[in-house]
Amino acid sequence: MALKYTEKTIEHFTKPRNLGTVENANAEATEGSPACGDMVSYTLNINPETLIIEDIKFKSYGCASNIATASIATELVKGKHIDEVKKMGTTEAASELGGLPPVKMHCSVLAINGIKAAIREFEKKIGRIEDEKRIITEKALLNILKNVMHPKHGINIVDNGNIQRIRIDGQDIFIIITLEPDEEMFASNIHDEVMEHLESMKCSHEIMIKIESKTGDFI
């Protein structure tokens, strides 16, 4: 597939900023996994008094846009207060690069969420927030599913209207996703991405995902 990357994306891919590891970092996180094909690790130095990100570096295992989004994300957050970073949207890295092909939008989510994960760990460590005891509600589920980008349209699967039904029944979570015929080729990818994000909740629920085609077939 011929991918059209912007010049800025290519520039960050070939000359990544803030590459490496911050020495004496007080916050770090790794998002993604090698099995999924993209993974980014951040090390940060956050000033405990001012809560400003004074230094941040990244390492990447992933494609060109994985490297480019992580690179630009470090530039975006450096010098900022962590509360400001926590409010950032997951597509901001992509926007800053001048856009990404829809199939690569998930890289932007990974890049931004990785930094947010490091901040969350830091805040727990200094006692600024408590350990999350997430109560699973439909709304919470939808918020998590908003991290799954539709590879054809480059927007999340909730806003794209792919979530047909969500049901929480005691310890069981049921999710029904419907796909148009021209989206069916992504069935397996969407399934895996949804699973990956739901598993990151680390809840004890049994998760069942059913993907249906608009034409009625199971995929």
Binding site: M1, C36, G37, D38, G62, C63, N66, V103, P151, M185, F186, S188, N189
Partner: peptide, 11 residues
């Protein structure tokens, strides 16, 4: 053969 270079994002 990487997932990232395939149209379906599968390896």
């Amino acid at each position: 053969g990487s997932a990232c270079s395939s149209k379906t994002l599968e390896p």
